[in-house]
């Protein structure tokens, strides 16, 4: 058991060579690889961490945006709802206005029709009344009545005031016409002439004429002026009164109708 010095020296050299070889082929590459991998892993972890933070930030961003969107949507919905309500209200108002217009149009139309009808009715009623009265008085009129009519005429002429006489004479250029419903007898003619000349002067010239429109009675006619007593005048007055009354009624009724419609 002794040391072989050659082997001893060779083993030292061998060992040093082995150290160098392993340093070159084993430790350095392996340690480098491990360090590199560690760095990679560290950088990946860092990257992951950064990405996670970014993701978190984006999530937060997204959430805030979503909240904003929700808020905007709510606002828009509320605005739209308000607008819709407003529009509906407007439409309702418009429809109400239209309905009111249509109703008033209709009421006016009804009113017009009513007025037309009443006007026709009025005319018809008055003319019917007039015709009936005239017919009745015509049937009653005879010579005796004619006598009484002459008496009545005389009374009328005598009670004329000066103004009426003046007006009569101003229009009487040529002659005063005496209109009667029936033909007068001679005696009656003379009496009439006497009465007229007494009132308007002896020189007054008279023309006698028959006018069935008078129904019964007598009338002095000069130009536009007419004096006398006859049924036609009465009936004419009656006709006017009747028409005035009906017109008055027609004016008051539409107001009542409108009042009821409201």
């Amino acid at each position: 058991m002794q040391i072989d010095w050659f082997t001893f020296g060779a083993q030292i050299v061998n060992f040093l060579i082995l150290v160098a070889l392993l340093r070159m082929f084993l430790y350095k590459p392996i340690v480098n690889a491990m360090n590199e991998r560690e760095q990679k892993i560290a950088s990946r972890l860092e990257d992951a961490q950064r990405k996670q933070e970014e993701a978190a930030a984006e999530v937060e961003d997204f959430r805030s945006k979503q909240r904003e969107l929700d808020q905007q949507r709510d606002e828009l919905l509320a605005a739209a709802r308000d607008q819709a309500d407003e529009q509906r209200q407007e439409l309702i108002e418009q429809a109400r206005g239209d309905v009111a217009d249509m109703r008033s149009d209709w009421q006016r139309a009804v009113q017009r029709e009513k007025e037309t009808f009443l006007r026709r009715l009025r005319t018809r009623v008055s003319s019917e009344v007039f015709a009936v009265a005239r017919r009745a008085l015509w049937d009653l009129a005879d010579t005796e009545l004619q006598e009484q009519l002459v008496d009545r005429f005389a009374h009328e002429i005598k009670t004329l005031d000066d103004e009426q006489c003046t007006a009569m004479l101003r229009d009487a250029d040529q002659a005063i016409e005496v209109h009667s419903a029936f033909g007068l007898s001679d005696a009656q003619r003379e009496r009439v002439e006497g009465i007229v000349r007494e009132q308007f002067g002896q020189s007054t010239r008279l023309d006698f004429a028959t006018d069935s429109d008078l129904i019964c009675g007598l009338a002095l006619v000069t130009g536009s002026c007419q004096i006398g007593w006859n049924i036609h005048d009465y009936l004419h007055t009656l006709h006017e009164h009747l028409e005035a009354f009906l017109a008055e009624q027609a004016l008051s009724e539409p107001e009542e109708v409108v009042g009821r419609a409201r």
């Binding site: 061998n14 060579i17 082995l18 070889l21 392993l22 082929f25 084993l26 590459p29 392996i30 480098n32 690889a33 590199e36 991998r37 990679k40």
Partner: peptide
């Protein structure tokens, strides 16, 4: 020495730094 150095050389020729 040959086994150690040669083995190391063979293995560390293609080292991976990935996973």
């Amino acid at each position: 020495m040959g086994i150690l150095a040669g083995g190391s050389w063979l293995i560390t020729r293609n080292l991976s730094t990935g996973t």
